[in-house]
Write a protein that binds this DNA or RNA. Sequence first.
DNA 1: CGTTGGGTTGATCGACCTCAATAAAAGTGG
DNA 2: CCACTTTTATTGAGGTCGATCAACCCAACG
Lengths: 247, 247
Amino acid sequence: MAAFRDPGIATPLTVCPNGQSSRDCDRCRVRTLSLCAALEPDELSDLDKLARTVNFGGRDTLFEQDEPSDLVFNITAGAVRLYKLLPDGRRQIVGFALPGDFLGLSMSEKNAFTADALTPVTACQFSRPHFSDFLDEKPHLLRRLHSMASHELSLAQDQMVILGRRTAEEKVVSFLMGLRSRWSRINGSMFHVPLPMTRQDIGDFLGLTVETVSRMLTRLAREKAIVIVPDGVRLLDIPRLEAIAAS
Amino acid sequence: MAAFRDPGIATPLTVCPNGQSSRDCDRCRVRTLSLCAALEPDELSDLDKLARTVNFGGRDTLFEQDEPSDLVFNITAGAVRLYKLLPDGRRQIVGFALPGDFLGLSMSEKNAFTADALTPVTACQFSRPHFSDFLDEKPHLLRRLHSMASHELSLAQDQMVILGRRTAEEKVVSFLMGLRSRWSRINGSMFHVPLPMTRQDIGDFLGLTVETVSRMLTRLAREKAIVIVPDGVRLLDIPRLEAIAAS
DNA sequence: CGTTGGGTTGATCGACCTCAATAAAAGTGG
DNA sequence: CCACTTTTATTGAGGTCGATCAACCCAACG
């Protein structure tokens, strides 16, 4: 996982502002993928004035379940895991946020889940009230936000199918294929799938144990459908993987 | 389930308009729960002009997965099941729509799931383009829609926890408690939980088989936590049920 | 009536979990 | 740089929860 952990960028446990110095929307590699794509240049610069570039080190918490949600984030680099905990410690990961993803769609008072960094993360941070005011002035930004929320809802429903009706092998393959299509929007690569999360995280996302995830991955590797590489997997037999994922 | 199936109101398989005659927003029992609550009286009457009251008989299809989504619905009576099918026939129910619920939050070209009536259903139906145009003129309606979508997303994430990390008993109890709180907003009753869906439907919602659902319900009944009544259950030992659902 | 769809119950099976050991990798401090 | 600990991943053996398979009940209905 060396590629994802850079101690040089590690930060304190809470928000660590880097100042406005390092942000430049024009050069932002995920601008066209993110919420900002809905904005005209002048609007973008208005929104930019509200933003603050923040960095998080691996394992840092962006925000915590049940706490007041007074910040929203647009992730520009790194990966974030989003999860809910049951009182007895069982954990369900409800999603992974990648560059271009927006955290704070929910419009509710309290955070529905905890978000913490899997790798060093860079994000544009907004105060929710300021962001909300800005939203009031830009109906098309609200439409874009709503369409992103709809998309999230659709992904959540797909995940419900995976959790409720798929076998362990299908779960793992669907996960890899889903992540592949998300990464390919970001870095274009079609075969290498970075896995910044642990096997435990994958298990907690798919409703499986670590051991089962590991067994399925090694089986897929033994059958030459994938190769396990440092920090991820390489997909070899895409047709076969698609067949498993589609069932 | 006799109470839910009234052959007298059964309709053809597709949309069966009853005309505007039977709609009266002022007397609508779910207006304050639904999307319409965001509107001023004059706006409501504008929206009303776009609406068409439609009735469906039990088992009728409102719309089908992967087909163009050119209609949206506001359910005013009855219950609807929303599900996705895998190619091999496995089914995942992603939700049940009750009076006050809005179908068509998704803003995508194709329906993400099939919706069919569990009981005779009445709904306000809108053409999506007309509804979308109306939305453009009323930003606060869009905000309301977005907040409903956020709520749906939150429910979907809760369901992910249930599907991924809960035992069969916890699943069934969480389901009953969740349905109870939704029904209580509609009809205020606190102990009787109508179950317009079959055991199979409950299983397909919770990622269980019919047999397991049946066994869990009879076990809860044997332990005097619930009573199974025609068309639903009556909750007896609420503290115990809450303890199971919370874990 | 016989039929059909839904529900319950029992016996058996198996996919995945649990527990345990080991290995490999990454951080820590000298 | 090397010892040391901690975290993560893999692999095996055995156990269990829920699935599967099968029988049966019951109400609705033509």
